[in-house]
């Protein structure tokens, strides 16, 4: 689990912050996060999953899914065909500096294709 993390906007630009690259646990995964509070009045916090192979150079990578709302702050994405590494991108746009969000990412469900 990625424990509670607070992001505070220092300006009103569109910002995106990345997690470190992590090794996949299987070919597919269901990722879930809980957004505990979001005061961004520009664009709300959006969490995207990126993937690349270990041999690939650079921080640029393929965005494979954006976590979408289930209910009550929980967002989820079912991602199939992950490459060797994955990471999260947190994007937001504040209406004024000082706005922010608090969230945590739950452990994913890893699974391989069975049929």
């Amino acid at each position: 689990m990625w424990m509670n993390t607070q992001i505070v906007a220092l300006d009103t630009n569109i910002n995106i912050y990345y997690s470190p690259w992590l090794s996949r646990g299987a070919d597919n995964a269901v990722f879930m996060a809980e957004i505990l509070k979001d005061t961004f009045s520009g664009n709300p916090l959006e969490i995207t999953v990126y993937t690349k192979n270990a041999e690939d150079e650079g921080s640029g990578a393929t965005a494979v899914a954006t976590l979408s709302s289930l209910t009550g702050g929980f967002v989820e994405a079912n991602v199939t065909g992950l490459k060797e590494l994955f990471r999260f991108g947190m994007q937001f746009k504040a209406g004024a500096a000082g706005q922010g969000a608090e969230f945590r990412i739950l452990p994913p469900t890893w699974y391989d294709t069975a049929v």
Binding site: G25, A26, T109, W110, Y111, D112
Partner: peptide
């Protein structure tokens, strides 16, 4: 690949 990923 991964450690057991399923309960059933």
């Amino acid at each position: 690949m991964a450690s057991p990923t399923v309960t059933i």
